[in-house]
C-alpha cells in the first residue's frame, strides 16, 4: 500500500503552500488586498495540516522532499513590481494545484479503502483548496493585462 507516499506529498505540499502564502503576503503588503487575503488562505492551509495529523499518525507517511524541491523551483528570490506579483500568484496557483491533485488522488484511495475519516477530511479540505485556486485565478486575471502590457 502506498497511501503513505501521498500523505507525505499532501503534507509537504500543503506546508509549502502555507509558507509560500505567508511569504507572498508579507512581500506584497503594499497591495490593497494581498496581505489580508493571503494570510486568510494560509490559515486554511494550516488548518488542513492539523486535520491531517491523526491520519498521518494512523497510516504513517513516507519521507518525501519533493514538495520542498517543487516549491524552491517555483519561487524565485523575492521579486518586486507588478510582473513579480503576477509571477508569485502564478506559482501559488501551481502549488495549490499540486495540493488539489493530492486530495483527488487520496479521495480515490479513501473510497477504495472504505476509510470514511480519510474521505471526509480530504473532501472537506479539497473544498477550501478549490476556493484558494479560485481566488488566485481571479487575482491573476485582474493583474495580467497591466503587468504584461502597460507596466514598464
Amino acid at each position: 500500500m502506498h497511501i503513505g507516499n501521498y500523505l507525505a506529498l499532501i503534507h509537504g505540499s500543503e506546508q509549502q503552500l502555507a509558507d509560500a502564502l505567508d511569504t507572498i503576503a508579507a512581500h506584497h503588503g503594499d497591495e490593497p488586498d494581498i496581505l489580508q487575503t493571503c494570510q486568510l488562505l494560509a490559515c486554511w492551509s494550516r488548518q488542513h495540516l492539523e486535520l491531517l495529523k491523526p491520519i498521518v499518525d494512523r497510516y504513517s507517511e513516507d519521507k518525501n522532499d519533493e514538495p520542498e524541491r517543487l516549491s524552491s523551483t517555483l519561487f524565485d528570490e523575492p521579486r518586486n513590481g507588478s510582473l513579480a506579483l503576477l509571477r508569485d500568484l502564478h506559482d501559488l496557483w501551481l502549488l495549490a494545484h499540486e495540493v488539489q491533485l493530492c486530495w483527488t488522488v487520496l479521495i480515490q484511495a479513501a473510497q477504495a479503502l472504505r476509510d470514511r475519516e480519510l474521505l471526509a477530511t480530504c473532501q472537506q479540505c479539497s473544498v477550501d483548496t478549490k476556493r484558494q485556486i479560485s481566488w488566485l485565478m481571479t487575482r491573476i486575471k485582474q493583474a495580467a493585462p497591466q503587468a504584461l502590457v502597460v507596466a514598464a
Binding site: E31, P32, G81, Q146
Partner: peptide, 20 residues
C-alpha cells in the same frame, strides 16, 4: 471587459507603481 473594471484602491496602487 477582460476582468472587472479596476477599483479605486487598485487604480491608486497602479499610479503608485508607475503603470498609470
Amino acid at each position: 471587459h477582460w476582468s472587472p473594471p479596476t477599483h479605486s484602491m487598485q487604480i491608486w496602487r497602479y499610479a503608485e507603481q508607475g503603470s498609470i
